[in-house]
Design a protein around this nucleic acid. Structure first.
Lengths: 256, 256
DNA sequence: GCAGCGTCTTGATATAGATCAAGTAGCATC
DNA sequence: GATGCTACTTGATCTATATCAAGACGCTGC
């Protein structure tokens, strides 16, 4: 575990305010591990033994039922999963798999539960984190129920643009099939919708998105902070999809 | 505020373990109010000034966008809303309206935030509550994404039966149009799906549901605890729909 | 440079669910 | 008892999206 990794983990809102002795203790009981692409890290239904912290790489959270699967989030550094299962000591509701070679820190859930009962500042951070995670998932459910798939895509792109600093050209950091799955549609449907949105102010080439007419796009599919977020303060938990990259420095990870 | 109401509120998992002095203080700063049917209690986007506790009656949580609306939960006694917005001091993501004459306790969110920082047991309860709320909303999103509307209805009825003690005849405590909206479909679609499910082991007359062939219904639409829940320990927060009533004692509230 | 593989796009078709309309049933009020 | 209103059911039609298939593109490994 590199010292600079520890410093980044320490800076997460979840851990930032806990007592140093407690943070040191938690990290000493944790283990850092590297995983290859495609590795299943946790399986839905399994006991929540560890809080996972993604230090490097990319992890997909997905859920499955009767052979069907859906992407629930993509977690990138430095993000965590799944806090709620750990604090309640209940089975994971989602599975996790690496999308590329990744390094993670595995924090024993039992250590976490022991410490937060004695560290009031840590408990406050956990409360903030869980409230944020609930809100993010509530916005996701609202998005699914209130909007058509074309509206979800358009608003997703508008939010990515905003997260990138209201630029009009940015790069998606997640494969389109995962964006489609997260937004509750098939890749074919995403592709067709993107094609149709070219008339409404957005064009896509590979992972690069260009907003060609922001006002028109916003008029066609009005974004709403109560659905699209984000909340004012950041969270550590990996809920939703990661923000965009800028055109010069961003590529999807190599395959395999 | 009746003493027996206070006792019931005290018994909620959220409040059960907090220090008596703190509970007393919180309740002294709260106000009890009665509202007629159809009254809007909170509006999405408004600051979260109060944690609401439903002491009597029934409240619908709904979300709206561009003239569209969807039911996110129905809260009945004794249940609360919306803890996450209160602890993060952020705007409500949902609106609330009474479905019938109701009595609620309004607990100032600022009091709540002040107390939980100094009452570790209360903070632990809040952590448990928020984790449970997150899990419930995650299961809702999974249900919406992984299942067809017919599967969602069938699994909803199987869960209601289980909550009623695995009886084969029970009464829905929520109007069908709200069940439909919560499950992400139109009332017409719910009606047609229920008609179609008669061949798979369930029949409905008004609000009364009879499971006529449990094995067949379970085979047709396999329930899954990772989607349908519930988690082992109850929560106070009003997420989802309320459980069923038994045939002898349950009616929807009178209109107006 | 080529073969293999996975992602993405495009076309054709099927279907789940929405929309619109009309009728029925039940409840509350007068 | 009659009237009005709302929830619900049923019918007809439309549409958004899924499914299946095939081809294009780009990347990796040899």
């Amino acid at each position: 575990m590199q010292p600079e990794d520890l410093a980044e983990v320490r800076q997460l809102p979840l851990f930032r305010n806990m007592r140093q002795a407690n943070f040191t203790s938690l990290m000493q009981g944790a283990s850092a591990q590297s995983f290859a692409t495609g590795r299943e890290l946790i399986r839905q239904g399994a006991p929540a033994d560890f809080l996972h912290v993604v230090v490097d790489g990319s992890v997909e959270l997905h859920a499955d039922w009767q052979g069907r699967t859906t992407t629930m989030a993509v977690v990138q550094p430095v993000g965590t999963f799944i806090l709620a299962a750990c604090v309640r000591d209940l089975p994971y509701l989602m599975s996790a798999r690496t999308l590329e070679p990744s390094r993670l820190l595995l924090v024993p859930a039992s250590d976490l539960r022991a410490i937060f009962r004695t560290d009031p500042e840590f408990a406050v951070s956990i409360v903030g984190e869980l409230a944020g995670a609930f809100r993010e998932m509530a916005r996701h459910a609202k998005n699914l129920k209130l909007r058509s798939s074309r509206e979800r895509i358009a608003c997703y792109l508008l939010k990515q643009s905003q997260l990138a600093g209201s630029v009009d050209r940015f790069v998606l950091k997640v494969e389109k099939r995962l964006v489609a799955s997260y937004l509750g549609m098939t890749p074919e449907n995403l592709s067709r919708a993107l094609k149709g949105l070219e008339a409404d102010g957005v064009s896509i080439k590979g992972q690069t998105v260009t907003i060609t007419d922001l006002a028109r796009l916003r008029a066609a599919c009005p974004p709403d902070i109560l659905i699209d977020g984000p909340d004012p303060e950041p969270m550590s938990g990996g809920i939703g999809l990661p923000g965009p990259g800028l055109p010069d420095d961003c590529k999807l990870p190599p395959r395999r």
